[in-house]
Amino acid sequence: MTTRSFVMLLCAAIAALPAASARAQAGADPAPVPPGEQTVVPPATPPTDPTGAPAPEVNDRAAYDNASREYQAHPDTDSAEALAVAASKIGAHREAAEHFAIALSLKPGMDASRRARLQTLLKAEKAHVATVLVKLSTDAKASILVDGIDVGTYPLKLPLYLDPGEHTFAVVAEEKRFVSVRVGVPADKSVTVTMHEAPADAKVASSEKPIWPAVVLGSLGGAALAVGIGTVAASFSRESEAEELGAEIGTCDLVALSPACLELSSVVSERNTLRNASTIAFISSGVFAAATIGYLFIPQAKETPAQGAPPAAVEWMVAPAVASDHVGVVVFGAF
Rank of each mutant, 00 (worst) to 15 (best):
S113V: 04
S113M: 13
L122Q: 00
M110T: 06
H128E: 15
A124P: 03
L133A: 14
G109Q: 13
L121F: 06
L121A: 06
A101L: 02
V129I: 10
K107W: 04
K126Q: 10
L104K: 02
L121Y: 08
E125F: 08
A124W: 08
L121Q: 14
L104D: 02
H128I: 11
T120K: 05
L118P: 04
H99I: 00
A101I: 00
G109T: 10
A130Q: 08
L104M: 09
S113Y: 09
I102E: 09
K126S: 12
A116D: 08
A101M: 02
L104R: 01
A124M: 08
A127D: 14
V129P: 08
A103T: 06
T131Y: 05
G109W: 12
L122F: 04
D111H: 05
M110R: 13
H128V: 03
R117F: 10
V129M: 01
L118M: 01
L106P: 00
K107I: 11
P108G: 11
A130Y: 08
A130P: 11
K123P: 14
L118K: 04
A116I: 10
A112L: 14
T131H: 10
L118R: 01
Q119F: 02
S113I: 11
H128N: 13
R115Y: 03
S105A: 12
A127I: 04
L118G: 03
P108M: 06
H128K: 15
V129K: 00
V129F: 05
S113G: 07
S113K: 14
R115E: 06
K126I: 12
S113A: 13
L118T: 03
K126D: 12
L122T: 03
R115V: 03
V129T: 08
R115I: 10
H128P: 06
E125S: 04
V132E: 01
A116P: 02
G109I: 14
A116E: 13
F100V: 05
L118S: 05
K123G: 15
T131F: 14
A112R: 13
H128G: 08
A124N: 07
E125G: 01
H99R: 11
T120N: 11
A112S: 10
A112F: 02
K126R: 15
A124Q: 13
A127E: 13
L118C: 07
A127Q: 14
A101G: 06
R114S: 06
H128R: 09
A112M: 12
L106N: 11
A116H: 05
K107A: 09
P108E: 06
H128F: 14
K123C: 15
M110W: 05
V132H: 08
L104T: 05
A116Y: 06
K126G: 05
A130E: 07
A124D: 07
Q119D: 02
K107C: 11
T120W: 03
A112T: 11
A116K: 13
F100L: 00
A116T: 01
A124T: 08
V132K: 01
H128S: 09
K123I: 03
L106K: 08
A116S: 12
